[in-house]
């Protein structure tokens, strides 16, 4: 008992620093910006800033645009990453080795530089359009468009997501798969009955990461996005530092936080379910 109490205190000591840090840099700002966002123009408190978010045409377009970009990016990133991870886990050969060695490179390239690279590659007079011109084709508009943001998001998110999923797949013992094969399970069956369930949890983690990363992104949408509609991050920056409406910016940021916490809720719920399912 005494030992347990000691361990408990030790555990608390370990948690307290990170909790304090969290409360100073995350929880307090959220509460403060929530109160800030409730202040209306005449100084009183009401929900007018949020009403504006959903009634102003430009703002509504921004929200829809952000959700579109986020969902499309999430779907493509996860599909590509999962395919890559499965491929790297179960195949051998030179190509796999090459992919394994190089797929992390984008992580080490600073965001602004990568974005300018994309502009040079995909822009109106970029390399790609010049090559296409040789064959008589023309490039649809990618830069200064939604497509540009999505492509940039793929570049930023695929490596890390692949890394996460690879580590989950690496944790699946070969013995399980081999024994399934022995009793005659087809490849598809192995995938859906063994690989999917065993990597499902990491998959959820990856969804959360990609979703939050994309919805709050700024650099790429600012540099390659259209003037309107904007991603919420870009709009927030504009409202905050150009229009200097702190309360409105706080309302946008709190709304973004709500969107993220919705996903966080599902994530935590599934984690808790798993934990309690265990004996």
């Amino acid at each position: 008992m005494r030992k347990e109490a000691k361990m408990g205190i030790f555990g608390l000591c370990l948690v307290i620093p990170s909790f304090l840090l969290l409360s100073v840099i995350v929880i307090t700002p959220i509460i403060l910006s929530f109160f800030e966002s409730l202040r209306n123009e005449s100084g009183g408190y009401d929900l007018s800033r949020y009403v504006y978010l959903f009634t102003d045409e430009g703002m509504r377009a921004n929200i829809v645009f952000t959700l579109q970009v986020t969902i499309v990016s999430c779907v493509i990133v996860l599909a590509v990453s999962y395919a890559l991870a499965v491929y790297m886990r179960f195949s051998t050969g030179r190509l796999v080795d090459l992919i394994r060695k190089t797929y992390m490179i984008p992580i080490f390239i600073p965001g602004v530089i990568a974005t300018y690279g994309l502009i040079n590659l995909l822009g109106n007079h970029g390399w790609l359009s010049r090559w296409l011109l040789l064959f008589g084709g023309t490039l649809p508009r990618i830069i200064f468009d939604q497509k540009g943001i999505i492509i940039a998001n793929l570049w930023f998110n695929i490596p890390f997501t692949t890394m996460l999923l690879s580590s989950a797949l690496a944790g699946i013992p070969n013995a399980v798969i081999e024994s399934a094969k022995d009793i005659g399970a087809s490849r598809l069956r192995i995938f859906f009955r063994i690989i999917m369930p065993l990597s499902y949890k990491t998959f959820l983690v990856a969804v959360t990461f990609v979703f939050m990363g994309v919805i709050g992104s700024f650099t790429a949408p600012f540099l390659v996005g259209p003037n309107a509609p904007q991603m919420l991050g870009v709009s927030m920056e504009q409202v905050f530092s150009v229009f200097q409406e702190r309360e409105q910016a706080a309302a946008i940021s709190f709304f973004t936080f709500l969107l993220c916490s919705l996903l966080g809720y599902f994530y935590i719920r599934s984690m808790v379910k798993e934990e309690t399912a265990r004996p």
């Binding site: 045409e57 430009g58 377009a61 003037n227 309107a228 509609p229 504009q238 150009v242 229009f243 200097q244």
Partner: peptide
């Protein structure tokens, strides 16, 4: 100038 930017964003950019 702040108002100009704001109106430009809603009237011109988001046309």
């Amino acid at each position: 100038s702040k108002e100009i930017n704001k109106r430009w964003q809603s009237d011109v950019a988001a046309q």
